[in-house]
């Protein structure tokens, strides 16, 4: 913004520029609809910029007209001028503008249900996490994951959205529009990300105490890398464990974690909470709540409810620090 340089002395201007710059930085980033990384988000970003430009033009025109008629040409206007202004500016112009926007909006409305290139992902909203199933073309059973979405770049993926208890909304702003998730009803979303990278998704419909902590990371990968990842994801959990991890696995069994969590290849087959078969390969913990350091794992196990209010998982704060560390080592090693 050159104006802040030109008149550094004019305090209000400098101040407003200083306040605006950090806001502009907010347009970038992993969770911005204004930094599109996919075909669908690009369409929405264009729509936004066109509407914003139009709104700015209308705002300036309306205020300019107001200024002109109240400050520059203050005498009474003829009835003909007034009538043209009312009919032209009040009826014809809004009709044309709204019709054009409606035609454009309706023409892009069906796009969110475009057929995909084969991969389907079923996402179910839980309190407050995401149950994820990958169904590659021709699959008879899904590859199960949670709290993370991975998508192949350059391919169109179909998402089938559902919810377990209350209404949630699935939204990855950098990749496309949002879509609500309803209990007992499937909704659809089709995404074609173009730029590999990591983006952030967030539940966009208030769903209870930890709504704000219901997030996830979306990783857009090169198609070959995605195929390799999915193939690796499908198998059982890894069995080569360090001593600490082996002790942690014992604690996992002793504490009955398997009643709620599945770790494929073990006796733990609970389906209440997220599948933990490859929890160590994910990039966040607790559905976008924490990072993935050993400390984060320990904090999650021992202070679950503090980190995510009203979450169903109890806090295992009776574990000693050594036990919590062993358990954290075990889970973090499940890559």
């Amino acid at each position: 913004m050159p104006r802040s340089k030109a008149r550094a002395a004019a305090r209000p201007k400098a101040l407003s520029a200083a306040l605006t710059l950090p806001l502009l930085a907010g347009c970038e980033g992993a969770q911005s609809a204004l930094a599109p990384a996919g075909e669908d988000a690009a369409v929405l970003a264009t729509l936004f910029w066109v509407m914003l430009s139009g709104a700015v033009v209308l705002f300036l025109a309306m205020n300019g007209l107001f200024f002109y008629l109240t400050r520059i040409r203050v005498q009474a206007q003829s009835e003909t001028v007034a009538r043209w202004l009312i009919v032209g500016g009040g009826i014809v112009l809004p009709f044309v503008v709204i019709s054009a926007l409606l035609v454009w909006g309706l023409s892009i409305l069906p796009d969110h249900r475009q057929a995909g290139d084969g991969l389907r992902i079923r996402v179910t909203g839980e309190q407050w996490w995401w149950r994820v199933e990958y169904w590659p073309e021709g699959a008879t059973e899904p590859v199960i994951s949670a709290n993370e979405i991975r998508l192949p770049a350059g391919q169109r993926t179909e998402l089938i959205l559902d919810s377990a208890h209350v209404i949630h909304s699935f939204w990855i702003p950098a990749l496309g529009g949002k879509m609500d998730m309803f209990p007992g009803r499937e909704t659809f979303l089709s995404l074609r990300p173009t730029q590999p990278g990591t983006y952030r998704g967030q539940c966009a419909e208030f769903c209870g105490a930890s709504h704000a902590w219901m997030a996830f990371e979306a990783h857009v990968m090169a198609p070959e890398a995605f195929d390799d990842w999915l193939a690796a994801q499908a198998g059982p959990a890894q069995t080569a464990l360090s001593d600490a991890a082996r002790r942690g696995a014992g604690i996992f069994t002793r504490e009955g974690c398997g009643a709620c969590h599945t770790i494929r290849g073990t006796e733990h087959i609970g389906v209440v909470g997220p599948d933990l078969t490859r929890v160590g390969s994910r990039t966040t913990l607790g559905a976008g709540r924490l990072g993935v350091s050993l400390d984060a794992y320990r904090a999650w196990i021992t202070h679950t409810g503090d980190l995510k209010p009203e979450v169903e998982m109890p806090a295992y704060d009776h574990l000693s620090e050594a036990e919590a560390t062993d358990l954290a080592q075990y889970l973090r090693g499940l890559e």
Binding site: F95, S99, L102, V103, L106, S107, L109, P110, R113
Partner: peptide, 18 residues
């Protein structure tokens, strides 16, 4: 008339159950 035109537009522009 404007209302009828606006309500009819999806018939032409969406053209299905998408």
């Amino acid at each position: 008339a404007i209302g009828v035109i606006f309500v009819s537009m999806p018939l032409i522009l969406i053209g299905g159950c998408q």
